[in-house]
């Protein structure tokens, strides 16, 4: 299953490193990554494949949430289908 992770907040050293090492530990493969500053906010969007992970998406979500708090940013993970259904016919 594919999911989209978003990271929003103030830019600082090590955000990508920290998030990607957490994902690596969980066995989650990063398929695509983009990073930009949108309306003055650091915005990172990742497309990931979580089928290789043994954790449930809800557990991954909690871990990402804790990681986000540590970094002072907001991290979400949502099923790719949510975005597809809202923006594609």
């Amino acid at each position: 299953m594919k999911a989209i992770i978003t990271v929003l907040g103030e830019d600082r050293v090590g955000i990508i490193a920290k998030v990607s090492s957490l994902l690596a530990d969980e066995g989650i493969n990063i398929l695509d990554i983009s990073q930009t500053i949108m309306q003055d906010v650091f915005t990172m969007i990742m497309l990931v494949d979580i089928s290789g992970s043994t954790s449930k998406i809800s557990d991954i979500s909690e871990k990402l949430d804790a990681c986000g708090k540590e970094l002072g940013v907001s991290i979400t993970i949502k099923h790719e289908d949510l975005f597809k259904s809202m923006h594609r016919i």
Binding site: I4, T6, D32, S34, T43, I45, F83, M86, H87, R88
Partner: peptide
């Protein structure tokens, strides 16, 4: 991949 603006629209 879905356009970043669309992703951010949903997140917002």
């Amino acid at each position: 991949m879905i356009n970043p603006f669309e992703i951010m629209e949903t997140i917002n």
